[in-house]
Design a protein around this nucleic acid. Sequence first.
RNA 1: CGGGGCGUAGCGCAGCCUGGUAGCGCACCUGCCUUGGGCGCAGGGGGUCGUAGGUUCAAAUCCUAUCGCCCCGACCA
Length: 591
Amino acid sequence: MHRWSRLFIPTLREAPADAEVASHKFLVRAGYIRQLSAGIYSYLFLGQRSFNKIISIVREEMDRIGQEFYLPALHPRELWESSGRWSVMGDNLFRLKDRKGADLCLAMTHEENMTEIARKELRSYKQLPQIWYQIQSKFRDEPRPKAGLLRVRQFIMKDSYSFDIDAAGLDVSYQKHREAYRRIFDRCGLNYLIIDAHSGAMGGSQSEEFMVYTPAGEDQVVSCASCKYAANLEKATSKLDPVQDLASEGDDKPLEVHTPGQKTIEEVARYLGVSPKNKIKTLELMIDSTDAKSSKTTSRAVVVLVRGDHQLNESKLSTALAGKETRPMQEEEIRQLFLSPAGFLGPLGISWATSVNDGDNPILLLDKALEGRNNLIAGANKEDYHVKNITPGKDFQPTGYADLRSVSSGDPCPNCGSPLRMDTAVEIGHIFKLGYKYSETMGARVLDKNGKEVMPIMGSYGIGIERILTAAIEQSNDENGFWLSPSIAPFDIVVTATNITDATLKSTAEQIAATLESAGYDVLLDDRDERPGVKFKDADLVGIPFRINVGKKVTEGMVEVVQRSTRQSQDVSIGGITEHFRQFLRPAQPE
RNA sequence: CGGGGCGUAGCGCAGCCUGGUAGCGCACCUGCCUUGGGCGCAGGGGGUCGUAGGUUCAAAUCCUAUCGCCCCGACCA
C-alpha cells in the first residue's frame, strides 16, 4: 500500500519564482519534477508514475500497429553524415567526442538509425510494410529551453517510422498512425485538434499535427469557425481581401519621390497619403552555405517582397528555397547590394537571378499577393527617396512568385471566406509522410514484384510524452492545483484520513484503501499526522482525480467522495465504495 | 547570438543605493496543544551571500571578470 507518510512527495506552498506557465508551477509544486539545469529535469515519484501510465497507453496503442525497438541515443558521426544531417542540424545537435577523439552525437530523432536498419535488412517487397517505433529520450540543444517541460533539452518521445513499397502503402501506414494517435490522446483525456502542418521542403507530401489549445503553447493555429479548416500558421493560407491599386502617375514610368527620414512602411504610407497595401515591403536576407570539402562559407542574397501590411512567413520562405535557412542581412551587406541604407530599399536597378539555380545572383522572391498588382511604391535604393508607379513584371523581373506571407487573424478562410481566428497551442503529436528523403540519401532499396530495385517510401510519426502531461495540466487546472484523467494520473484515488491519530479513522481509511487497491485501483493513502487542511490542500494540488475523506461520518458508516475536477462531493457507504467507483473509473479487473 | 532581469537557508523574499560580524515568512527538528481547508504556544537546527579576482582597517554591499538561471527578441525592412 502506498502510504503518503512514507513517500517522497515534496509539495511546495509557493511556486519557484522562475515558473511562468501553469503546468510548470504545478509540476514543481506538486512534487512531480525538479530542475537540474536549463531544460533538464528530474522526474520524481509522482511524475514518473504519470509518465509510466502515459507510456503504457502509447505502447498499447502502438503495439496494435507496429513493433517496438530500443535504439541507441549515442550515435556515431558517420550515421548522421550519411543523411547529411550532421551539418544541417547545426547547433541543435548535441555533439561529443569519445576517448579516441571520434565524433559522436546524442540523437534528436532516429530516422537515420531506423533507415540504417532498413537499408541493411530489408530486401524484398514481401517484407513490407513495416512500422517500427520506440519510446526513448531525445536530446536537442535548444537555443532557449522554456516553460518547464514544454521545451526542454532532454525529453521522452515516441517516434515511429513506416516503410512501404509505394505511396498507397504509405497512405495506409499514415492512416493507421492517425487512428492510433486519436486513440492515444482520447485515452489520455486530452481535448485536441488535428491540423494541417508545414511539411518542410523535403518531399513531404502530407503532414498533420495534433494540437492542444493553451496560451502556454508556442504554435499558432489558424482555424475557421464556419468550416473545418485548421492549419498551423506555418502553413495556413487565406483568400485575399480586395485591394484598390493606385492610379498611374505621369508617364507611367517609375517616379522618384522625396521621403526625407521616412523609413518604415507606416511612415512612408502616411507621408504619401496611401495605404500600406499599396506599398512593397522589402526584406533582405542571406543564405549561408558551407562547402563540405573546403569548409568555406559562401553567402547568397535573397530579397523578398511582400505587401506593405503583410508579414513574411519564414516557414513558407524556407519551403520556397528548398529548405535553405536564411538570416537577416547585415548592414554592410545591405549597402553592398542596394547601395543604400535600410529604410529606402526596393527591387529596382538590381539584376536579379532568373532562377534559383542561376549562379550566385541575388534571388528576388515576390509573395503571390503582389502578383498582378500595379503602381506600387517601394524604396528607391537611395537615402530619403521612394519610388511610385512600380509594377512587378514590367518595371523589374523577379526570380519567382510564391506564397510567402503569414495569415493574419480575421483574413478570409481559404475554403469558405469566413474570418479566420488564430489561437496559441502546443503540439503533442505529429504525423508526417516523409517520402524518399532518407531512403534516397542513405541508399535503402528493396526489390519489387518485378524484381526491380525500388526505394521504400517512409513516414515518420512523433509524440511528446512530457507534452501530454503538460498539455493535460494546462487544460485542467485552477488556483489550487490540477486534475488528470485517471488514465494518466499517478493515482486514481487519494484516501484522506482527516485525523490519523484517531484509531477508528485510521483503520477505516486503511481498510478502504486496501479494499480499493485489491479491486485494482491505484490508491494513495494519506496517513500523515497533519491537520486536515494541509492534507486537503495537498490532495487538491497533486492531480489525483478522486479523494475519499474518511472523517466524522464514519460513525454512520459513510465516507465522502470528492471529484477533483468538479469539486462535487457525495456521501458513500463504506461497504459500497468499490461499487461506487465502477461508474467513474476503468473496470477494476481486466476484462 | 542580441537585449533585459535575477543569483542571500529547501521554497518565497528583505538587506546592497549610503561597506561595520546576515535577517523575515513558510518549510524542517523537539515539546505541549489542536484535528473538516496550509491551527496555536515555546524552544531549536540550518547560509563559503553563485564563483574568482580587486579596492578597503573592514565587502552580501563598491569595482572587474566569469558561471548559472529566467524572460523578451533573434523580421527597424
